[in-house]
Design a protein around this nucleic acid. Sequence first.
RNA 1: GCCGAUGUAGCUCAGAGGUAGAGCACUCGAUUCGUAAUCGAGCGGUCGUGAGUUCAAAUCUCAUCAUCGGCUCCA
Length: 619
Amino acid sequence: MDKFIHLAEYRSPMSAAQSSDQPSQNIYLPKTSESEQLKKIRHTTSHVMAMAVQKLFPGTQVTIGPWIESGFYYDFDSPTPFTEQDLKAIKKEMVKIIKRKLPVIREEVSRAEAQQRIEALQEPYKLEILADLKEPITLYHLGDEWWDLCAGPHVESTAELNPKAIELESVAGAYWRGDETKAQLQRIYGTAWETPEQLAEHKRRKEEALRRDHRKLGKELGLFIFSDLVGPGLPLWTPKGTVLRSQLEDFLKQEQIKRGYLGVTTPHIARVDLFKTSGHWQKYQEDMFPLMSENDADRNSEQGFVMKPMNCPFHIQIYKSELRSYRDLPMRLAEFGTVYRYEQSGELGGLTRVRGFTVDDSHLFVTPDQLDDEFLKVVDLILSVFDKLQLQNFKARLSFRDPASDKYIGSDTAWEKAENAIRRAVEALGMEHFEGIGEAAFYGPKLDFIFQDVLDREWQLGTVQVDYNLPERFDLEFMGEDGNRQRPIMIHRAPFGSLERLIGILIEQYAGVFPLWLAPEQLRLLTVGDDHMPFAHKVAADLQAAGVRVMVDQSGDRLGKKIRNAEKAKIPVMSVIGDQEVEANSLNIRTRAAGELGVISVTEVVERVKGAIANYGDF
RNA sequence: GCCGAUGUAGCUCAGAGGUAGAGCACUCGAUUCGUAAUCGAGCGGUCGUGAGUUCAAAUCUCAUCAUCGGCUCCA
């Protein structure tokens, strides 16, 4: 377990070593948080942008405009939305302002003074911002024409900004204070750098990220599709994509067998009463597909079936089907269970956010004495799974409830016990982590493993949850050593989280180049001419019989084209077959990773494939 | 769900009130070729869907569906 004690320091996938299909220009792009100069540049640029917007669009109110790691944004309350054309005009105006070399002047004022000046401007959002500010209250002026509340820092003059290192990137809607019940503002995202070269590199990396995007690669590699007739957020897996799924499932199933998990299988729908008992119906209804009722009367009295949004209540029924003894515990019920959640339409995207997905779910029923040990074992399993998948860029989050919210079920005592159990585990492991208040499941706190996609969006994959609440709601018991019935504790856990989301992240992490054990097509045979086809098919049959996923390129293309196609399809191993190979009854191997390897016998190829698969490595 | 953008052949895209194009893919023919694209021909689209405006709509308007970027929500 030692090797997992320190989680790899988080790095963006874009900067990861294997991230590039093309050599990087080796221009270092610091994050804003790493560079005082970028903080100044981006603060000032965003002020210049806001000044330009207010000049071009009178009546527009300025709200907040912080830097973000790769740039900045500013939120405006504008009577009409901004368009792409507007961005160009705004940029032009910004250049004018910059060229006037306006000094950036810091001024410290009293709260009353700030309030008075804001009232003169008639900008109510600023008043709200002011109310939350601590002393000292500072204003930053651009010349004597424009100012905003800001803590700084700023450059000393707009002359320090390079218009060629600035770009306005996109417009978007955003709610005031991030609250969907409040006004929707217009947000403009932009970026600013010290040099035009840095901006060019930033844009190059964004384009590279697009090439690795799992939605693009999934289509190019033929891994999954979506169909308008099937519906949004419901991926269909092709034969190639299904290889990925089954390899991952088989891998985890083997790991679970080694750790004493028991497989179960449960239906996709259930009576709504099951979810009333669990509390899902009360707390989660708007995220569930609507009730299936036979008639209006049933619908009105909430009788009928629903698609399952989670697997736990089903596993609980299996646990409950017999009186369990303390000797039976811990009982670890596991299933690749496909669940259906009615996500809001605007949330859907690729494989990372879908409406039907498969959870590598397991529920562990444990005695209070077993809780800590079982929890650690689960974390160990999760970390070893990530290790095998070469996933290093993740953060561990303690997802606790927001005490101010009423969206949770269960007693304060139960929640405290569960949260403490997670804290104990993380401390015992010495694991780096951060706390996410309000990130808990409605029935219990979680330890979540957060990854980033190619566009730097964060996604939860693996999760472990400690749950005192569902055992209570379903009245779970086991017969204790002393002959008294006791209540078990549940651990919910999923190393992958969602098979779909995991595969989305993996596609991007590998840039579509899968390790041999996952590659849908492991080896492709390329004949020089048609005369070599019979030998190719014989070899293919032998390799297939040995368990290798092999295909013969059947096209009439020339060798160069066949190689090009195999490279584009990111096939890890290819073999050229011509007169020499037929004569020598062997294969001439070329790998994607290492190029030509020379002539190898069929038997040796099989052994090398098996060896590579066994240690999750390359051919 | 909200704000904005986009939707043209299997894929990537061009066209922009006068009735649809390219490259790749696919099919056929010729070529039988040794490590990233052989040549030629052919097939293929009621321009997301439905209304409306117009003599005429892929093009303008509205609605709707889907996708994309954000926001909100979440595995």
